[in-house]
Design a protein around this nucleic acid. Structure first.
Lengths: 216, 216
DNA sequence: CCGGCGGTACATCGAAGGATGCAGTCGCGG
DNA sequence: CCGCGACTGCATCCTTCGATGTACCGCCGG
């Protein structure tokens, strides 16, 4: 059984080279060529290849979006091929569902081997980027929410106010905060009131939520 | 410049095989052999090799812990080698800072190539596990905090109470909740009071914090 | 020296929150 | 049908909260 491949790459010379390389292997058959992302998705829909070899930089629809589309529709596995190993490309492509990520400096033999590997249902990543992938994976950066409660807002608060805010984030009542911070309950109220004003909040509940989001 | 390697593997026969394979390459020199994790760390400290080839299953100190130690002290890169591609091994090893992850069914030539790759500062992962790594990476599962506020607690709440809790999590006041859920403020208070009791909380603030942690 | 300013602190008072008692509704097994 | 329990709903009463006014301290520049 041959591996049916669609090659998506906007530079025709490079595309021709890829086709040539892949065609040189008896078990690989290039069944289609696309010059942009949209064409790649269309061809994948029509031809149902085993694999799409996808460039990142392409007109009309970039490779990452095309990859997302192809994977979402379950049309084929995607092996991404690009010149630059920028993080945004790598992570973007992988999040989009790519099964592999190669750099264009890969030589012919490795490329063919890569296609076979991915077709086997395995994954493959260029060694040069593997390390950064591992690093990214190993250090799960705290999920900075898109709604991004800016930590800078804390700058407007005084030390005491930040301490009180921290207590609020733990769900403490004014009396409890007073004990913990060693001041009168009335004073706690003052600080609460002040920080509510500065942060433009309307109740301690909102302050607590904010404190949570900020991880205070 | 030769690549100086420490081999850590408890089964002496396997270890001998690895040493033989690595030694067959002119640019690789096996400078030490360890039969358990502690020895591996000690040897790494003494010999400062370029790379430690580390088995996962070892007595006294498992490979993951040893890897963490070696990497933390900046002693050497670590290439993990194991028989089983269990997720816990893979992810554990990578989080511990391993630069590569190979299965023992890797043949001699690939092993040597892998050592060279890692020594170059690149990363390397067995194709069979790469796909799962990608999947794990692409689907950033919500970081289940270790303090684990059990989502099951919500089971004790009625539909209405959950709705109110959700509003609390957004920092709304009783009057606002009343409008949103179309009931009297007095009723909102009832629900708040009830859910506080069921969840063993002492104020709406704590409820709001909990709602946050649960992502309600 | 002193007047202003920011941080901290406390007291007072109206508003919001929370506990409690009770009533209407629905579904279920006797 | 009836009793029972779970859910939802509202009203009353006491507590906590939050806004506001005031006061003390330390610091700075005039």
């Amino acid at each position: 059984m041959t591996i049916r491949v669609v090659v998506a790459e906007d530079q025709s010379a490079v595309r021709a080279g890829l086709v040539l390389i892949l065609g040189s292997s008896p078990e690989i058959e290039v069944v289609g060529e696309a010059a942009d992302g949209e064409q790649a998705v269309e061809l994948a829909r029509e031809l149902r290849p085993d694999l799409v070899l996808m460039d990142i930089q392409m007109p009309r629809m970039d490779g990452v979006s095309a990859t997302r589309q192809v994977v979402a529709e379950g049309l084929a596995d995607v092996l991404v091929l690009t010149t630059f190993d920028l993080d945004e490309y790598v992570f973007g492509a992988l999040r989009a569902g790519a099964s592999g990520f190669l750099l264009k400096n890969t030589d012919a033999k490795e490329l063919i081997e890569a296609v076979r590997t991915v077709a086997r249902g395995e994954g493959l990543i260029a060694p040069a980027v593997t390390r950064r992938l591992i690093a990214e994976f190993a250090a799960p950066r705290p999920v900075r929410s898109p709604d991004a409660p800016d930590p800078a807002v804390l700058d407007v608060l005084t030390r005491r106010e930040r301490e009180v805010l921290s207590c609020l984030g733990q769900g403490l009542a004014n009396a409890e905060i007073a004990v913990r911070l060693e001041m009168a309950e009335a004073t706690v109220k003052t600080h609460v009131s002040r920080l509510l004003g500065k942060l433009e909040l309307r109740s301690r509940v909102q302050a607590a939520v904010l404190a949570q989001e900020l991880g205070v």
